[in-house]
Nucleic acid binder design. Sequence first.
DNA 1: AGTTTATTTAACCTTTCTGTTAACTACGCG
DNA 2: CGCGTAGTTAACAGAAAGGTTAAATAAACT
Lengths: 116, 116
Amino acid sequence: MTADALSLTFAALADPTRRALLELLAVRPMAVTELAAPFDISLPAVSRHLKILRRAGLVERSREAQVRPCTLNAAPLKDAAAWMAHYREHWEQSFDRLDVYLQELQARRPSPSDPR
Amino acid sequence: MTADALSLTFAALADPTRRALLELLAVRPMAVTELAAPFDISLPAVSRHLKILRRAGLVERSREAQVRPCTLNAAPLKDAAAWMAHYREHWEQSFDRLDVYLQELQARRPSPSDPR
DNA sequence: AGTTTATTTAACCTTTCTGTTAACTACGCG
DNA sequence: CGCGTAGTTAACAGAAAGGTTAAATAAACT
């Protein structure tokens, strides 16, 4: 609750049901009942997942008659993606990470009692 | 635990301490004690955060004398980034989402009892 | 006004998370 | 061998996650 936006975003994405809900909403806005249909869990459970997605700012709810259509707002994903992009160079070269590491070790070897 | 890789990755990222740990490891591999130093929490707490990062495959531990250096493995971030990239077009146009939505509503209006 | 439809809130349960301190393991060194 | 260093595991506690069913709310429709 006191969590930062990035934590809320990643936490929201850390559940397969919630990711699936976002995928549905990527197609078009949908009512809660409509969103819930493909899942085996109860409606209140879906309602709570949506609450977590709303807490992260990924879903917005409007009101139209008795239906509350949910809309995707992908904006928070932009920040999350930006955070991860920071590591792109790392995952692109992840195969030779170990080599690099071993080289560093050797480079540091000279000092025997190596003060930290 | 039975969770899929993507869920484990996002869950690992959903904590500021763990993200900070990854940022440290992006600089160079480090020992647990060294990693723990900047944080106010106890060493066992850091050890557990590292366990979660390892469970997600983001951190690997090797062994060197009594030290267990931790290494960043950014590979899982690649999959997570790929999942999010799916939404890039959405966040890039997130300002006019509402307009699009309202247009869709109007387009559907013709059918009055609109079978779902 | 009373019913139906859509959705949330309440109350409850179980599991997982996050942190703590204390005890244990593992290795290197004098 | 016994000690110090590095790190994990154990045991415990409180908060949050995720699910359930039952009750409440809100608007639309006779």
